[in-house]
Amino acid sequence: MPRARAIQPGAAKVRMNLTPMIDMTFLLIVFFILTSQISNVEVAEEINLPAPHDSVSVDPEEDHRMVINLIPDAGDRARITSMRLGFRTLAFDSAGRAELRDELLAAVAADPTLKVDIRADRQAAYGEVYPILRLASASGARRVDLVVAATLDQGDLHEEGQP
């Protein structure tokens, strides 16, 4: 008697299907684990990268590299307050630079083909960035790359438009 069951008096039975919620939760967990790791290592959102006009910069290679983020001061962006190296934050003083030098030397000793990426804010003063450039080049790294924001230039449009 299905009809009799449908109009049964009493409290309504509300059931929640947990399966899709669990699916979604696991997918979100995996997503956040993967993206948070990448963003911590490579991206420091406080940095507003320079975007040169008609840039001849190239896509970064997918090989072993160390990314040094130079975090600017929130009030005076010409000044650098700290350095972020992977998951670690180093102070931008003589002790922090000594620590960075040791890290770089250890990393180059472990992998002589290591490349160093330097991410600095567009407003940062050259006098602040230069000591880190010197440290990176003196560490014996194969190459020191300067990271800039990618821009879509007129040349790119022409290249894309060509068959």
Binding site: L34, T35, L49, P60, A141, R143, D145, L146, V147, A150
Partner: peptide
């Protein structure tokens, strides 16, 4: 379920460089 699986697939296979490029400077 299928939509989220596709979403995950495209997220994982996408390039995570976030619109950055580099100037290569040989030391």
């Amino acid at each position: 379920d299928v939509v989220f699986l596709l979403f995950m697939y495209f997220l994982l296979t996408a390039n995570f460089t976030l619109g950055e490029e580099v100037f290569l400077i040989d030391v």
